[in-house]
Design a protein around this nucleic acid. Structure first.
Length: 422
RNA sequence: CGGGGCGUAGCGCAGCCCGGUAGCGCACUCCCUUGGGGUGGGAGUGGUCGAAGGUUCAAAUCCUUUCGCCCCGACCA
């Protein structure tokens, strides 16, 4: 993509109403714009990363045997009346009426809709288990939206639901989802911990959260310094010593990016969602649900990986893998520049951001650093005259001068060792 | 929802106390300059001062109401 196609400008000055680093950087780098409190437009850069996050989530969910669906955001109130959550969910549930004054909810989550669907569809234990997921915009009228994309009133979520014929099978799927989530966050280059958690309004009696350790996190987790034990502080408020091995625990702030719940019969019994078991008896589904905050992950990734100059994207979710910076007048038009860009497009199709704007070199450097593309290919006149270009590695600041034809192979090699997960 | 703060040009801010022609920086347009880390200079464009009502000869400024936004606090992906 050419920079000149995008009208969005980066901001030199700090936005006044952004507190946390991910919010500030997303505004400054032109990733998002605020429309109202807790409501944002996602601009071209952000969409690129968002789609990559979604692709990783889809690949791993598909690998786990989940089927993708798309359920409605607009949900009739009677489904929510069935589970009692029309009352229970409180003011956080967005409610709207149609022209006939019929009440609807804007879905904050989809247990009701999916349970209704599956109970109409599955009659026999022979059809079980069923595992479905979707990636969709959710609505929650948060008591306090904040931190930009981290806690919005509208956000993108991957939610999955499992229906099993036995508790044992439901717990097996729960374990599969735990592994799947770990894979997803690892592929995204995140330092993520799984912790024991409270179940909250979604319910059930057993749940784990996936936490990205970050300064601006809203949650506090307790981590054992010796073993792998970890817990949300809400779950073990008094813990000083690890319940698993007796070593001291440390407290860290974190961002919740995923949450898996064992639901059991909570929704299936309330909604009378049943199937016939092997004995011909009508029993409620054993359920689980599994969420990932897709849009929140963008902010979490920035919180965890940035420096004074700006974002530092992991390869797997960077908006572009590399940017080409032709410096000075005429450099964009030179044949060498076109050749380098085409050669890079060969190894990474669609992944090259060419800064063809007629601006000073300093601004191109600043913007490239701010937006955090993993690799910068700098084409200055002096180097190009000698048939060379300079590669800058964003994360380390390392600079390598190489002959122009060698640059694609160099990047390919570096990426293979530096970002094998991508 | 409690507590605190803020709404003035696309962004960041001053002006408000003490009422009297709406200002600065960035961005944007044009000219010159510069060309490897947000060049330098010159000339310009752009604002119903969040909204409504009130006081006054006169309101960004004082009063009332209202809307919005941000931050801190009690189970949220």
């Amino acid at each position: 993509m050419r920079a000149s196609l995008d009208p969005i400008q980066t901001l030199h000055e700090e936005p006044a109403d952004a507190e946390v680093v991910s919010h500030r950087l997303m505004l400054r780098a032109g990733f998002v714009r605020k429309v109202a409190g807790g409501i944002y437009s996602y601009l071209p850069m952000a969409i690129r990363s968002l789609r990559k996050v979604e692709r990783i989530v889809r690949e791993e969910m598909d690998r786990a045997g989940a089927l993708e669906v798309l359920l409605p955001a607009l949900q009739p109130s009677d489904l929510w009346e069935k589970t009692g959550r029309w009352q229970e969910y409180g003011p956080e549930l967005f409610r709207v009426s149609d022209r006939h004054e019929r009440p609807f909810a804007l879905g904050p989550t989809h247990e009701e809709v999916i349970t209704d669907l599956i109970s109409q569809t599955v009659r026999s234990y022979r059809q079980l288990p069923v595992l479905v997921y979707q990636i969709q915009t959710k609505f929650r009228d948060e008591r306090r939206p904040r931190f930009g994309i981290l806690r919005g009133r509208e956000f993108i979520m991957k939610d999955a639901y499992s229906f099993s014929a036995s508790e044992e099978d439901a717990r097996r799927i729960y374990a599969v989802m735990q592994e799947t989530y770990a894979r997803i966050f690892t592929r995204m280059g995140l330092d993520c911990r799984m912790v024991e958690a409270d179940s909250g309004l979604i319910g059930g009696n057993h749940s784990h959260e996936f936490m990205v350790l970050a300064q601006s996190g809203e949650d506090t987790v307790l981590l054992c310094e010796k073993c792998s034990w970890a817990s949300n502080v809400e779950k073990a408020p008094e813990a000083r010593l690890c319940p698993a091995c007796g070593e001291p625990v440390v407290s860290r702030t974190a961002i919740e990016v995923g949450h898996v719940f064992y639901l059991g019969h909570k929704y299936s019994s309330r909604m009378e969602a049943t199937f016939l078991d092997a004995a011909g008896k009508e029993v409620p589904f054993f359920m689980g649900c599994y969420g990932i905050g897709v849009s929140r992950l963008l902010a979490a990734a920035i919180e965890q990986s940035h420096d004074e100059q700006g974002m530092i994207w992991p390869m797997s979710i960077a908006p572009f893998r590399a940017t080409v910076l032709p410096l000075g007048p005429g450099m964009m038009e030179r044949a060498e520049t076109g050749q380098v860009v085409s050669a890079l497009e060969e190894i990474w199709p669609g992944e090259i951001y060419v800064d063809d704007r007629e601006i000073r070199p300093g601004m191109k450097f600043q913007d490239a650093d701010l937006r955090g593309f993993p690799y910068q290919v700098i084409l200055g006149e002096r180097n190009v005259e000698k048939g060379c270009g300079e590669v800058k590695i964003r994360r380390t600041g390392e600079r390598i001068v190489a002959s122009l034809p060698e640059i694609p192979a160099l990047l390919h090699r570096r990426a293979a060792t530096e970002s094998p997960e991508a």
